[in-house]
Design a protein around this nucleic acid. Structure first.
Length: 465
DNA sequence: TGAAATGTTGGGGCG
DNA sequence: ACGCCCCAACATTTC
């Protein structure tokens, strides 16, 4: 019984951690290790806000470890090299880590496993990507049958959740880098990193808001969503803990709980899709939509990024993302549809922008959401389903609170015009203190024209295929 | 987890 | 009373 390494990647928690548990079972001493991997840290798919959240999470984890006689060992470099070095320094006999699904993570882990005793353990999802299969062993590419099988498998139970270890014996004198300086969280930061905050939020959600989740989740200005995505992204909360909470709430006949469970299953569906079809990271899942003649206008893209398209609900959402590192899920669908269909810009540009700014940015969920919205993915929205940003705004921000909060230029515009401010007569614009084209942009594309163009271009791509 | 275009129906105004 | 038209309101089809 020697030393084992617990290699932490996106499982920043001590409770219900299968990799940590396996390490403690196998060895007398466990070394919790996080490796700052430049390939991820400096990736064009990474940004400041998620880096800051991760660093905060590592600090919180280090504090939790210190309370249990342990501490976090931080290294920087290529994981295979750093782990080999640690093995040589400490004589560690095994490395335990939670299996991941992204193409990069799997290449990285294969390189490590080629030379080191790496043991990959489940936990990223309730169902491992191999677990939900068709009768003939095939992989599901449609959500509904996938979810049916997911739900029919034995459901997780609170008694299965692994407890937080009381003591984690860790060898002394192992060098650790200091973490980069703690970033100062922005004023009114939405997400406080760490396992304690994740568990507190989960309890608050299932005790209160989950009951109205079925309708509340769609309203842009309400705190109707769970607000847990950043914590699931970094494993400050396990998928199993979330599923158990949903199932428990469902027993109390909360209708919203089952809807939320289905959102957790969407997450696992997209993890499965990325695992089995890693090419979706580079290209559309649907072959017949790989040749769309994108317009890719860089000025239009810049306007979309900055929240200056002239469509209030789109601009509110894009500014919310830049300011907070989070965007309401319905807003994600609206702006994704707008980028691909109204602006005819390659969805991969938008996918990358999201990854650079979303704290919860996850390769599988983000890619799945984008390909669903633009119609190129598994079980995707049909290509002709084009969101009308005016109607979406009127339906899901009926009082205009969301738009007024994030697009202050329109704060005094009357509600009747708020989601289409270009229809304000000149005197109304003056009274509202918002001249269209001066204080707030005129629409960069006209809806009906853009819709017809998208239908034509998508149809052409299908015909050529 | 759309929206627009087109079709159908039925009430009311009107000659 | 009756036919005709208009047009909401709703349903269906199409993109």
């Amino acid at each position: 019984m020697g030393t084992a390494i617990w290699w932490i990647r996106r499982d920043l928690r001590l409770s219900d951690n299968q990799a940590l548990h396996a390490a403690l079972d196998s060895a007398a001493r466990v070394l919790p290790v996080f490796i700052l991997d430049p390939a991820l840290w400096n990736s064009p798919y990474t940004g400041e806000k998620r880096r800051a959240f991760l660093l905060g999470g590592l600090r919180a984890l280090d504090a939790d470890l210190r309370a249990r006689g342990s501490r976090l060992i931080v290294r920087q470099g290529r994981p295979d090299e750093e782990l080999a070095r640690l093995r040589d320094e400490t004589g560690a006999e095994a490395i335990f880590a939670e299996a991941d699904v992204s193409p990069y993570a799997r290449r990285r882990d294969a390189r490590v496993a080629a030379h080191l005793p790496l043991r990959l353990i489940g936990g990223l999802t309730v169902r491992p990507p191999e677990a939900v299969r068709k009768q003939d062993g095939g992989v599901y590419t449609v959500y509904t049958p996938y979810s049916r099988v997911w739900r029919a498998l034995p459901l997780p139970d609170a008694r299965e959740l692994l407890p937080t270890p009381e003591h984690i014996p860790t060898p002394p004198d192992v060098h650790s880098l200091a973490l980069p300086d703690a970033p100062v969280l922005p004023e009114g930061a939405l997400f406080i990193p760490g396992e304690a905050e994740a568990q507190r939020r989960l309890q608050a959600f299932v005790a209160d808001r989950i009951a109205s989740y079925a309708t509340g989740r769609d309203m842009l200005a309400l705190a109707g969503t769970s607000g847990l995505s950043p914590y699931l992204r970094f494993g400050m909360l396990s998928a199993r803990q979330a599923a158990v909470a949903a199932l428990t709430a469902r027993d109390d006949t909360y209708a919203g709980a089952d809807i939320w469970l289905s959102e957790l299953i969407w997450r696992e569906f997209y993890m499965s899709v990325l695992y089995h079809f890693p090419n979706v990271h580079r290209e559309s899942f649907r072959e017949d939509l790989r040749s769309i003649a994108w317009d890719n206008n860089v000025d239009a893209f810049a306007a979309w990024q900055a929240g200056r398209t002239g469509y209030p609900v789109v601009d509110a959402a894009m500014r919310q993302l830049l300011a907070t590192g989070w965007m309401h899920n319905r807003a994600r669908m609206i702006v994704a549809s707008f980028l691909a269909k109204h602006l005819l810009i390659d969805w991969r540009w938008g996918e990358r922008h999201f990854m650079r700014h979303l704290i919860d940015g996850d390769p599988a969920a983000n890619n799945g959401g984008w390909q669903w919205s633009v119609g190129t993915g598994t079980d995707a929205a049909p290509y002709f389903r084009i969101f009308n940003p005016v109607l979406q705004g009127e339906k899901y921000d009926p009082h205009g609170d969301y738009v007024r909060r994030w697009v202050p230029e329109l704060a005094r515009a009357p509600l009747a015009h708020l989601h289409h401010p270009w229809t304000m007569p000149a005197d109304v614009q003056r009274v509202a203190g918002c001249i269209i084209g001066v204080d707030y942009p005129a629409p960069i594309v006209e809806h009906a024209w853009a819709r017809q163009r998208a239908l034509r271009v998508y149809k052409n791509a299908k015909r050529e295929a």
